[in-house]
Design a binder for these strands. Structure first.
Lengths: 207, 207
DNA sequence: CAAGTTCTAGCACAGCCGTGCTAGCGCTAT
DNA sequence: ATAGCGCTAGCACGGCTGTGCTAGAACTTG
């Protein structure tokens, strides 16, 4: 039983090719032929590892989620370290920042992710995987706020569910702006905005 | 010189057809043939009013902007009325709410707009028109905050440029969530989040 | 060495696409 | 009435798409 190539590796390499294309020319350009050309393979080879185009794109999408998930997991370690030192806001910042495209690598990820999300708007078959990823970020927001509340860094009068939605929306909005106008939207401004936002939560809920 | 149809009207009707398709099946489905079918015309007719597909989509896009612009303009009247009564936050709410897809009509607009924005990510030719619209919303955020600051409803220690970015990002994030998960994200939650956000600005900047 | 399997390569098909183009219908202004 | 123009209709072309399929190369195992 001859095994010449590592399937997992090949699939990853093809996902990489998808990324490069999507980042450069958008999802519609990620045709089977295009991916094959980008990866230096033939159409037939590509289809040997992915039966249909949907399989290919689905796999490439999941790799984005996995990558971000691992990074945030790593950030969670940093978070508990800082939290142990009693600096709640710093800990939350360290964690939440990981979800923002503040460096080149994450910007690429975000671009790819945005392109996929866009596709999803008109291709509801992909909605499930997107929903799944959303849930992840939402949970991170919620857990961060819950952690801060425990430390007294979120005022007791705050509605946690509401603040979760607000923080989540802020993060998505900031990501959006970093993506669409990285010139105007600097990493510094974004970090400061996030810090101010968390700072405000220490005060009592207005109204 | 026979004039049988009103050009402006026909172009609007075609833009409407584009909207319906984009909302239902996404931008890629808005082909010349598809639009013609949706509008009950032939390909040739469509191309009589729009020389190329890009012209057609560009026109349809501008109609979204115009419509939103007019609505917000109307909201501005309401704003100054309430502002005259000294209720700054209510005035700002009335204005800013207009940019959010809180009813069916605006939800449709937002869906169409999102689809176009998505397309723009990979088709930079459309970036100009998008930038233009962004500038509009950003200005509204800035002016609202400046107005509130004058009334003393934004604390003097706040950095207006930063808060503009933060409010703008929040609005875009909320729009995003209303669009992607209208079930979970209720209009009430969104309105409350916005109100809390504005309420927080009355306090001094943290840090 | 031979057999068997993985992998590569790409042709073929049906179906979209945008757009150049021609042909003709129906109205209007002369 | 008739010439001319606005408008409609749709064919034709070249190019792209995903995928079913066959054929053979390359390698491992028996």
């Amino acid at each position: 039983m001859p095994i010449r190539v590592d399937h997992a590796e090949r699939r990853s390499a093809l996902a990489d090719a998808v990324w490069r294309i999507v980042r450069r020319d958008g999802v519609p350009a990620a045709s089977v032929r295009g991916v094959a050309r980008e990866a230096g393979l033939s159409m037939g080879s590509v289809r040997h590892f992915f039966a249909t185009q949907d399989d290919l794109l689905d796999f490439a999408m999941r790799e984005v989620i996995d990558r971000a998930g691992k990074r945030i997991e790593a950030g969670a370690a940093a978070r508990s370290a800082i939290a142990a030192a009693g600096r709640g806001v710093d800990a939350a910042m360290a964690l939440l920042e990981q979800s923002l495209p503040l460096d080149e690598e994450r910007l690429t990820e975000a671009r790819v992710w945005a392109a996929f999300t866009a596709q999803m708007l008109s291709h509801p078959g992909m909605a499930a995987i997107r929903r799944e990823a959303d849930e992840g970020l939402r949970t991170i927001c919620h857990d961060s706020l819950a952690g801060l509340a425990e430390l007294g860094d979120v005022h007791a009068s705050r509605d946690l569910a509401l603040e979760t939605e607000r923080l989540w929306a802020l993060l998505d909005g900031l990501t959006f702006h970093l993506l669409l106008d990285p010139v105007r939207t600097s990493a510094d401004v974004v970090r400061t905005a996030l810090r101010i936002h968390l700072g405000d939560l220490q005060g009592p809920a207005p109204g």
